[in-house]
Write a protein that binds this DNA or RNA. Structure first.
Lengths: 142, 142
DNA sequence: ACCTTTAATTATCATTTGATAACTAAAATA
DNA sequence: TATTTTAGTTATCAAATGATAATTAAAGGT
């Protein structure tokens, strides 16, 4: 039986991550996109390509609502649909160049704040941060 | 100048944390509370006590909207207001017994899933997970 | 060929969330 | 004491999100 304190620590940690990311991204959100749309773009930026169905599953959104938001993003020129040649029912979604630029822009703003937070760390400590990220991603948040 | 790969890793990690917590909590959400209300309860559970203003700041919500959601939570019997004896303008918010029980119940459901994910880890690896959580909380997500 | 399942879309409605103005009351300050 | 600031509430409207039914079209199975 594992330590229950570890779980308490996890709850605290997850709350902190949510909070810190909200702090870092809160006032960035561009005029033109809603939070849900941002999440979709982020997902498309980090692990492309996707289909409406796969986005629907991963984002816990119904397929109709996913379809609606993808249409809005397409209308804004941020992503594109292509029909899968191997299966005419499927649509492959990817960011447009404009969409990629938007996300790179947002990511670089987040990066600035990340660097502010980690400014005082030694290169050794940064190394440890990288290892900790790796370890948690492998063992807990996969 | 620190490594840009570390930042890429961070973006991936944060996305994974959001995703994993959504996976773990997605189908729990009780009938009676909305996502925003859950966030408030979580915050009250993890770091009490709070005032409407402090909740407003930390949750990035306007004070009027915070007030509305707190009223709804009060009506549901999940939290209570008390006026601060030292300053009649301030309200101190805390969970009711029922609210605490709700959160304990939800947390224990999350804990089950956390244990599922970490079932195969040795006690040594669990120790490392704890250290990694600590390190990241101190150095990045504070 | 016929039926079923899968993938996606459109349309519609209800709920949740965000934003803002107007207001009350208690403190702080001049 | 008069004024200003702070903390909170209520009301209202707009926008975002969630849920569901109906529809289309391609693929799979009989």
């Amino acid at each position: 039986m594992q330590d229950s304190a570890l779980f308490q620590q996890l709850i605290q940690f997850v709350t902190s991550v949510h909070q810190a990311t909200a702090d870092m991204t809160g006032d960035i959100q561009h005029d033109a996109i809603t939070p849900v749309q941002y999440k979709i773009l982020e997902y498309l930026a980090v692990s492309p390509p996707q289909t409406p169905s796969s986005i629907s599953v991963c984002m816990h959104m119904s397929l109709p609502n996913t379809s609606r938001e993808l249409r809005k993003l397409s209308e804004k020129g941020l992503c594109e649909k292509m029909s899968d040649p191997s299966d005419g029912r499927k649509q492959v979604i990817h960011l447009t160049t404009e969409g990629q630029q938007l996300m790179e822009n947002i990511f670089s703003q987040i990066e600035v704040r990340f660097r502010e937070r980690t400014r005082n760390l030694s290169s050794e400590e940064l190394e440890q941060v990288g290892q900790a990220l790796q370890l948690l991603q492998n063992h807990v948040f996969f």
